[in-house]
Design a protein around this nucleic acid. Sequence first.
DNA 1: TCGCCTTGTGACAACGTTGTCAGGTCCGGT
DNA 2: ACCGGACCTGACAACGTTGTCACAAGGCGA
Lengths: 355, 355
Amino acid sequence: MSSDPEAVPPTGGAAPPTVARATMKDVAALSGVSIKTVSRVVNDEPGVSQQVRERVNRAAARLDYSHNVHASNLRRTSARTGMIAALFQDISNSFSASLLRSLEDVARGHSTAVLAASLDEEPDRERALVKAFVARRVDGLVLMPATSRQEYLAAELRAGLPTVFVDRVPHGVDADSVTVDNVLGSRHAVEHLLAHGHRRIVVLSDLAAIQTAGDRLRGYRDAMGAAGIPAADRLEVSDLRTPEDAERAVRALYHRSGPAPTAVFAGRNDLAVGAVRALRSLGLAHRVAAVGFDDFPLADLLDPALTVVRQNVAQIGAEVGRLLFARIAGDTAPPRRVIIEPTLVLRGSGEISPS
Amino acid sequence: MSSDPEAVPPTGGAAPPTVARATMKDVAALSGVSIKTVSRVVNDEPGVSQQVRERVNRAAARLDYSHNVHASNLRRTSARTGMIAALFQDISNSFSASLLRSLEDVARGHSTAVLAASLDEEPDRERALVKAFVARRVDGLVLMPATSRQEYLAAELRAGLPTVFVDRVPHGVDADSVTVDNVLGSRHAVEHLLAHGHRRIVVLSDLAAIQTAGDRLRGYRDAMGAAGIPAADRLEVSDLRTPEDAERAVRALYHRSGPAPTAVFAGRNDLAVGAVRALRSLGLAHRVAAVGFDDFPLADLLDPALTVVRQNVAQIGAEVGRLLFARIAGDTAPPRRVIIEPTLVLRGSGEISPS
DNA sequence: TCGCCTTGTGACAACGTTGTCAGGTCCGGT
DNA sequence: ACCGGACCTGACAACGTTGTCACAAGGCGA
């Protein structure tokens, strides 16, 4: 509430001390040309003499001019923002992180930046973030959904927002997706254990509501059922969220009375880690078989090395990028469902026979 | 080149099949109010009757209206874009990925999205990406530089772009930074090996031009020098970029004639992994001591478990976020250099005595 | 009845940029 | 001397939004 009637000049003195950025107007004034000519120089458009061009460039450099893409995009007819959004489960997890990296590599080839976010299986966060990214007019969306149904996306898909689902297929809407065959991968893993003579096989899995977790559990049940294992010999522990959960669950199984399981199948990489920790501390690492779903760095360096169902992450990421940028380029073919077959990687822990 | 003189209506039939998005104008027309009133409703501003408010909201819903933050930011006086950029070494690496995640968590608390990019130690990419992100008017920058000097940033810093360096301090410009004391951490690691009686200790490090690699090498030299180890007994292998490089280097060391090293100090987590692989395949894993710089998931599950110099990544990320958002909020204090002390985590591999 | 205040609403300009179009200058050809 | 065209350059409107200000309608006290 200063009593000075002379207002501070608009470019300075505001509460945040940032100086106002130079605009084309400023560059035009300094170089003695029109704004439009500055625009032409900045965008490397023809029709400007070399002399003027240099004068404008010097003025721009002197004023630290930086092109404002938002204003530019606003004016340009149907311009892209050069940004896509990637909504993954947890970008610090090796699976999401690798996926993000391979998507980034594809995006860079299209001069596009990637907005990355973690959903932590929180449906509300997913909806809020999608809304925020749409408001930012991202050119495309890559989604590893935390919601069980994605009807809320219908309007955006109708509006033509290029969207690719990854790791989990869409429900309630139709869109491209790249997933692995979780039921198959899981069935192969369990069949592999059965082939080695195991009958009491534990499966560790995440929240049943999570699509991949459900599918992997189904694969276990399919394989066990096909082998004629009685329900009483099936051991399912669900709703495990963290490695610690898995570790506790496995310890609990070996502390109770009755016949102990001879093999463990972990439905996600970090659950496998928890299981390995538990077996190791129980002194059972070399006596109980273990197979994990999802490979991870160093799985081959464990003792015994961990047998896993591997998803080719680089392939998934590249495929997602390919689909997304095809859509962004205008591809209007019906949605595609790409399903990648996981492979069983034998390393030792899965080839232990029941004692 | 259709001969139909009737032009297609502007909202449809364009080459990219996306329908034009509804704007406030459309919502205004449908609900029979002015654009400004729509703006008021969308922004939850007072001064609109409940009746009109509902009418506008219905129209917006019917048209799938989505607020355009770019246009909004353009008009608003000194608005934020709600985006920050994180330029890291490689976002699929567990260190960068964890850092990104903890930064994301801070950013989410400020309703801010994170643009993530990998630099792969390419200076040109760093400069190009910074330019692109500045053009997008990000509210702040977090940089793990690939360039050796950052003078190119001077204009942006002058213009008040909040910037925090992480893992590596700035050169040629002054800005906030959060780093660990690499020389100290490295010295501690080597002193630890010396204390266990080792004298022939190999150090594996990355390109000498990389600041952290240089610092870690210096720590090795300091410790070796202080212990009076003759230069002939120092074994330095530099310019190792990948785990495979490290693995090859270690194998080569044990295939040559002369006294073999009794301990390995790896200057980065993936080089440690390569070293472990080599020692394992040589059958030396339990006879040669190994210490790594940077902890990583599962380092404790190796056999022997790997002794490492740990950087508290969550703490670093949180500190970076704190500094950055303080700057964004207008903090103009002189640049701060936060240095975090790494800790040596003893797990077994580093406590093996020379045979 | 008058004046004044409150409440709700809209017209208009502006943010920084680019598409459109209308010049102006200079050249060579007749 | 005149004209046509190539080449540069700038005025203006528009993109979708919000800040400013003006105004209309209604209520209330004098």
